[in-house]
Amino acid sequence: MKNHITQKLGFLGLFLCISITLLFLGAIIFFITARGIKVISWEFLTQVPRSGMTAGGIAPAIVGTFYITLGAILFALPLGLACAIYLCEYSPKGIVVNIIRISINNLAGVPSVVFGLFGLAVFVKYFKFGVSILSGSLTLGILVLPLIISSTQEALLAVPQSIREASLSLGATKWKTIKNIVLPTALPGILTGVILSIGRVAGETAPILFTAAAFYTRGFPKSAFSEVMALPYHIYALMTEGAHPDKQRAIAYGCSLVLLLMVLCISGIAIFIRQRQKGLHG
């Protein structure tokens, strides 16, 4: 009987753990939606800020985030694909692969602000790209590289060895096998990884603090060498800088809701696709 009660209490404890965890998810979404929704309008999404950041919209920040994210993925995707292809398709297992694997794992664990400093020292200062979309994109690209590599690797490993053999036995070269058989088969998995990476990059703030972001720019960015406004940085700046904290706070709610919705939708799609793929393969 005593055992039975301990079990009941234990299970109740576990239930509480997951409830509290999900409660927080609910609370974050609820509070930000409830207060942010009042601010959001067509004008808010499509206009530039006015009256010292207390009125108008956040369009330049949305556009800026779009450019930075696009740049980061364009930079990281080819590198990530090549690395995953090398690890899964070409490399004989051995010391070289171990070194690459360990560096990927460790790169994934580097704090985001350290990437920011690296970007500042290398792209902004050394290559003289300045505080710009280009510097920010490169910095974020490095940050997201491990994520792209590991999700691509997972997708490539899921391709059955038997169809690689079939292709080779027909006299296809290794590269043609990869290009015509392996990559197309792994494509849904690779895309899921890319979508997840987009979600991650779009929300990162610390790496762009000193490499790309500005609290206010006149209008929209003009080239890859322009400073930009970015949604996540904008939230931070609205809360900590500027002259009208109260009015800015309302806009910060709006920004947070836009960013939250964007990231949740992007990640939600990726998580959903991944779950369905797992379901299909048993």
């Binding site: 038997s162 053999e165 079939a166 036995s169 027909l170 006299g171 296809a172 197309p184």
Partner: peptide, 20 residues
Amino acid sequence: AVEVRKRVGMVFQKPNPFPK
């Protein structure tokens, strides 16, 4: 090896059509 495989084809234990 590619040339060899063109001349010597192979059919495997489990049918392995490409997903095409």
